[in-house]
Amino acid sequence: MDTNAPVAVAIEDVTFNYGRFKALDGLSLQIPKGMSFGLLGPNGAGKTTLIRLLAGLLKPQKGTVSIMGKSPSRLTAPITGYMPQLHSLYNELSIRQNVGFFASIYGLKGDDKRARVDSVIKLVELWDRRGDSVQNLSGGMRQRVSLACAIVHNPPLLLLDEPTVGLDPELRVTFWDYFKDLTSRGTTVVISSHTMDDAAHCDKLAFIRSGRVIANGTPEALRLGTGKETASLEDAFLYYIRLRDNAHA
């Protein structure tokens, strides 16, 4: 992993409110290319809002967001793969038809489309079920189909909103194997999560609380930053919360 890699995502002093609720409060962050970057924080910390800003579904009310140097919009959509928290699939359609539809709206056609659709279905290990309707699949399988739909156009930036929620430990490991395979091929993977198990797999992460980044770095650096060699990432998260609260007291 090259920590001096060029920047894939730059977020500068971004604020976003839902009415009176401040979801993001002057958040700044830089995500280097070709690594898995975790946005870690409790529910309501602002992770999904940040992912939706990167997907171009929200516009910052203050500050700037850029993806590969461009502001997120319909024009940056082809270089982005988005996997929302909900499965967001078409239940009546088969796995192949779902993935095929997303391939079409990302401009893939003919043999190229067929090859990519087959390849991602094989990658998520659902080839034997490719003709089955999504409504007949388990939750974990639907997550895998949703991931296949997000990566079918081979985007250089992947935005995954809580992709491992509800997965059993074995499938969680499988998902992380996919993500590692993607980053090894140069894809930047941004993952939001609230579990420290996911955090440990990331190349770098940012702890987010109340719409702000309270610390960021490699999991190892964040752990050691607590001053205790035996500290877990959970200990580290609590340590940085207290550190920040004390600074503001």
Partner: peptide, 11 residues
């Protein structure tokens, strides 16, 4: 179901 949001994040 969120599929419209997913469409809106596409081209």
């Amino acid at each position: 179901q969120g599929s419209l949001e997913r469409l809106m994040a596409s081209p």
